[in-house]
Design a protein around this nucleic acid. Sequence first.
DNA 1: CAGTTTGTTGATTGACGAGTCAATAAACTT
DNA 2: AAGTTTATTGACTCGTCAATCAACAAACTG
Lengths: 189, 189
Amino acid sequence: MPKLGMQPIRKQALVNATIVEIGRAGSLDVTVSQIAKRAGMSSALAHHYFGSKEDMFLAAMRHVMTLYGAEVRGALAVADGPDARLRAILRASFSAGNFRREAVGAWLNFWVMAQTVPAARRLLGVYQGRLRSNLRACLRAHADGREIADGLGALIDGLYLREVLKNGPPDGAAAVATAMAYLDARLGK
Amino acid sequence: MPKLGMQPIRKQALVNATIVEIGRAGSLDVTVSQIAKRAGMSSALAHHYFGSKEDMFLAAMRHVMTLYGAEVRGALAVADGPDARLRAILRASFSAGNFRREAVGAWLNFWVMAQTVPAARRLLGVYQGRLRSNLRACLRAHADGREIADGLGALIDGLYLREVLKNGPPDGAAAVATAMAYLDARLGK
DNA sequence: CAGTTTGTTGATTGACGAGTCAATAAACTT
DNA sequence: AAGTTTATTGACTCGTCAATCAACAAACTG
């Protein structure tokens, strides 16, 4: 059965399975066997393509952040003017996709991983840097643009955390509204 | 050697050791033996006093939140007027103690735990509820007091996260300043 | 076709860890 | 003194899991 060119397919399947399993467990306490099984292969094969479990986690982290980045970019592509662009970023940040079990588990656990795994911290730094530069670009006209953008970045993370850990279903629209209220106040509108 | 009345001393020692070990590991991936050793006893004794590892984690979580609560209450006790009280809460939230390894590890991992352990989620809810009611009390005079308080609560968590995961030493004063800028804007000052 | 690369897995290794238990001992009780 | 409760641990059970390896198969190469 061995068809050639399996590598990228297998790797992608493993990355997806890793994200799903982290979401199911709510933690990084997932076994390579679980991941491999969900991806439809043996654990030995998983070790063959990724050297170690940590490599799988990092690849999964990269993928989650890539998805989020794509969502933001897509939203920005059709937004005209600084105001619309800010709203686009907020909507993308609090979209339903980011509140799925897998995404939530991924983000929370990547924060934990970033404490001790340098590669994870770097990845997180890249994501935060991009977000910050996007926000700053929208606020370049304003005198305190930098400070406002940095505060907004933190507010986004904080609101996400609250929505995710509260009881009941998360409400992305409410988070967007709170963030907009912050913006309106700081822009003197 | 068996002196009587060891229970509370042993339990407290285990709670402290649990927090330290979580901080060292950066995750909940700590063994009961590690914790027991740091607390100066056998792992069997740890199991004797707490039924399970999860019980130890929950006790540790309770303790961390109690400490934070005490810090806030202490700061509020000597603060006069809504403005000073708000600043007191912010300073307590971003005090050096909250940026120690153990505290950081505890908070990040408790967020993860709250995803799946109902008792952990309840504890977190209690803490957030108290913080919210404290903030609201300070903003009762203002028309949008509730919304401002809720936004500020999220901003505190988000700023904490950023300070904790950024490279370089965390800067509590900067976080306080950013939060104050948010407040000033929303209070129309 | 002979040889190499790529895909694939079952079985195994080697290690670790949560929780239990029996046993020992000091301290209180009656 | 006999009995009970509390403190304490070493040894053990039973399980798990990351990582390795040998071996087999299909596909490419020359």
